[in-house]
């Protein structure tokens, strides 16, 4: 039942976002939607809530907590965006000078959920000098192509997380675990 309600609400909010500007002269709500659009949206989201409830919500419901969404938004705007800006100047520097020292290293970020490891892999790909190549699905270890390998990082294997991810695993543990 909770899964059905969550799915329906998310569907309805998405529908509202995608149908702004449908207001007509004789029927409008807040100047953005027409009444018919909203009624139809409710019907459609109840139908898709019935169909998709087992797929959309898995056994754990921890992502239904709105505080996590705000932490996620803060993560996107704060450390993630700064890391991405750094990454771009780093790539610009390497494009112009051609100085590279690449290698593929293994890190074990110690995250347990699929969502968390996906977020970490995507964040790593978009931040300075690193690209996720493969994953060890048994241990949730990531193989990373690193464009500028530091010598001191290679002394310990698997390579210490702090050289590659920075503060990302802390944030992701707060959001997804």
């Amino acid at each position: 039942m909770i899964a059905f309600v969550i799915t329906t609400i998310v569907c309805f909010i998405t529908y509202l976002f995608l149908t702004t500007g449908s207001a007509t002269a004789d029927s409008d709500i807040l100047g953005l939607w027409s009444q018919y659009e909203i009624i139809f949206g409710v019907v459609l989201s109840v139908i898709s809530g019935v169909i998709a409830r087992t797929i959309f919500v898995k056994e754990s419901k921890r992502m239904a907590n709105p505080a996590k969404w705000f932490i996620f938004l803060g993560y996107l705007v704060g450390p993630f965006f700064i890391g991405m800006a750094k990454a771009n100047f780093d790539v610009a520097y390497r494009v112009i000078t051609g100085k590279i020292n690449p290698g593929i290293v293994r890190i074990s970020p110690d995250l347990k959920t699929d969502l968390g490891i996906t977020m970490l892999a995507n964040s790593i790909t978009l931040t300075p000098g690193t690209l996720t190549v493969d994953i060890d699905e048994n241990k949730n270890d990531l193989y990373i192509h690193w464009i500028n390998v530091k010598k001191e990082a290679l002394e310990k294997k698997p390579v210490d997380c702090k050289y590659i991810c920075g503060s990302f695993p802390k944030w992701i543990r707060r959001i997804a675990e």
Binding site: N101, P102, G103, I104, V105, V133, D134, Y143, H145, V149
Partner: peptide, 21 residues
């Protein structure tokens, strides 16, 4: 990620690699 994984599986070695775990 999918492109890099496919490239490594089909045997493309990283150019000038210092280390390849």
């Amino acid at each position: 990620h999918a492109l890099a994984r496919a490239a490594h599986r089909s045997g493309v070695e990283p150019y000038g690699a210092v280390v390849d775990d």
